[in-house]
Amino acid sequence: MSNIEKLSLYLTIYITDKFIDGNDLQKNIIDRLPQLNLFTFDIRSVMYKNDQMNLPSKKDIEETFRDFQYTNIISYVDYFLEQKKSQCHVFSYPSEMPYYVGITNNFPGGLYQYVRFISLYDEYSFEHEFFIKISQSFPFMEKLSLINYQSQKHTQSYKSINDNYDSTIVKYNYLVTLDIGEVHDDYIEEFLFNTETYFHNNIRIYIKYKSLERVTHNFTRDVLRINCAKISEIFFYGEKIYSKSLRDYFPCAIIH
């Protein structure tokens, strides 16, 4: 392998002691490949550890890439108190990866035109501005998965009573699959209010029946009907007995 000139490395690593950083890449890869002239990578280190006092910060990780001779390097660190888990994501930019998983509020933005699938997760709320950043960073995204049980600070009700609140509509021009089965009800509103979110017809959605029933006020809420009419398939988690109003509320959807 000493003659390798180009290398792409994409890994998710579960570790117990330290995050993968620039020092590790330099020592274990670059120094061992003297002919290497192009190195692209996307590495996510995941660690389950109770003591976060001794874990490195984003600045600490960035310092290990200070003398890196390759392309731009992006890094960020997340700590999840509820799960007692931390992760460090380091990658070369621009990226040609078709997917980007585990995006949190610390995501720095950028343009990722090759990405088709993304997943979002955090223990802190995703606000509307975050979804604007996501849609702009991944303009050709086709599948979006979201896990977040924290309520939004600025809900649709807040925006309705604050006339000066400027809410840019988030546009998902290529989205075909939306998985919001593990979310707070606020995010269902985020996607189903057409004043918040725009997507084309023929959307496939994964969702909990009881959550959808609450948000739509038992399938009677008119302000959600525009986006609901664009849904072509619904895959329900959980409940097997559905309201008689469900079919009329989603006139174009196949119900699974």
Rank of each mutant, 00 (worst) to 15 (best):
H89N: 10
F126P: 10
Q87N: 14
S145I: 03
F138P: 02
H89I: 12
G110K: 02
H89E: 07
G102H: 03
L120Q: 08
P139T: 06
E123P: 06
S135I: 01
P98G: 00
G102W: 05
F138S: 02
V115D: 04
S92W: 13
F126V: 01
F130H: 15
N105W: 03
S125A: 15
Y99Q: 09
I118K: 05
S86V: 12
Y114W: 09
Y124M: 13
S86E: 09
T104W: 03
Y112R: 05
Q113R: 13
C88G: 07
V115F: 07
D122Y: 09
G102F: 04
F117M: 09
E129H: 13
S119W: 03
Y124C: 09
S125C: 11
F91G: 01
S119P: 06
E127S: 08
M97Q: 12
E129N: 15
S145Q: 14
S135L: 08
F131S: 11
Y93Q: 04
I103K: 10
S92V: 00
G102L: 03
V90A: 04
N105Y: 04
Y114M: 11
F91A: 01
E127T: 13
S135W: 00
F107M: 05
C88Q: 07
F140R: 02
P98W: 00
N105D: 11
S86H: 05
S137D: 07
Y93L: 00
E129V: 15
S95T: 10
F130T: 09
S119T: 15
N105I: 05
T104G: 10
Y100L: 01
F140C: 08
Q87A: 11
F131I: 08
Y99M: 05
